[in-house]
């Protein structure tokens, strides 16, 4: 990836994370420039989800630095409420989409989208409503605004979850296996929404099992295994002629089953 002098949107420097004795991230460096889309692939247990979750501090890293638009996310120097305030503010600039959607079941689709802007940014109900409808329109679910999540399909739930994350107008979107829990026929509708975001130059970090999608949508692809980045390259290169044996082996296994 060409390095620019511009402040990267997301930057990881020597990130390490342990769960007990198990080191799941063994010193990760990563730079995501504005408007770039990075896919992270790898076998389960490779640390790719932990890496993504570390970016917005859902996992607390043990060593290293994470920066969002030049501002340090992890702040070992801040304790208690001071850190809480810091991280809440940082998180408002990052949208996260989860494998299991995690929509709020007690709120309607529209309320799911408008809750954060209303309560965290003090946006008025009517303006939040307008914004919410706009976002639901964008993910093709304006007609479901008043419906509760229990009445939505998996694909629809995930599209609402994307709209909910976008409602805070984040600088970067993090996708943690956004389509892994979906029936195959529902994957496409979510991918379409993500492609739409890519076309609008949203900065995105995507952890995925969808090799074809990763190849298609991203500017840069990373293969992780055993807590390290084994190989990172343009998707054309990484998916067509990977340099590393482990990457070749992984892709053979995956592309063999997925086309």
């Amino acid at each position: 990836m060409t390095q620019t002098t511009e402040t990267p949107m997301v930057e990881l420097k020597g990130v390490k994370k342990r769960f007990g004795d198990l080191e799941v991230l063994k010193g990760i460096d990563l730079r995501v420039d504005r408007g770039r889309i990075i896919s992270i692939i790898g076998p389960s247990g490779s640390g790719k989800s932990t890496l993504l979750r570390s970016v917005n501090n859902l996992e607390v890293i043990d060593e290293g630095q994470i920066l969002l638009d030049g501002v340090q996310v992890n702040r070992p120097d801040l304790k208690g409420l001071a850190f809480e305030k810091h991280i809440n503010h940082i998180r408002q600039n990052m949208g996260m989409v989860f494998q299991h959607f995690n929509l709020f079941p007690h709120l309607s689709t529209l309320e799911n989208v408008t809750l954060a802007p209303r309560k965290l940014k003090g946006v008025s109900t009517s303006i939040a409503r307008e914004l919410g409808m706009e976002l639901l329109e964008r993910v093709g679910l304006a007609d479901k605004a008043q419906v509760y999540p229990s009445a939505l399909s998996g694909g629809q739930k995930q599209r609402v979850a994307i709209a909910r994350a976008l409602a805070m107008q984040p600088k970067v979107m993090l996708f943690d296996e956004a389509t892994s829990a979906l029936d195959p026929e529902l994957v496409e509708e979510v991918n379409r929404v993500m492609k739409g975001l890519a076309e609008e130059h949203m900065t995105m970090l995507i952890v995925t099992h969808e090799m074809a999608f990763a190849r298609d949508v991203s500017d840069w692809a990373m293969f992780m295994d055993g807590g390290v980045v084994v190989e990172a390259n343009t998707p054309e290169h990484l998916f067509s002629h990977p340099d590393q044996e482990r990457t070749q082996h992984f892709l053979r296994k995956h592309l063999g089953t997925q086309g």
């Binding site: 809440n88 929509l103 709020f104 954060a116």
Partner: peptide, 20 residues
Amino acid sequence: GQNEASRSLGFGRLTTLQYI
């Protein structure tokens, strides 16, 4: 996952408890 989703939006511990 409800807690994580709420925290990832920027809600704090107490507001997560309150709204979610």
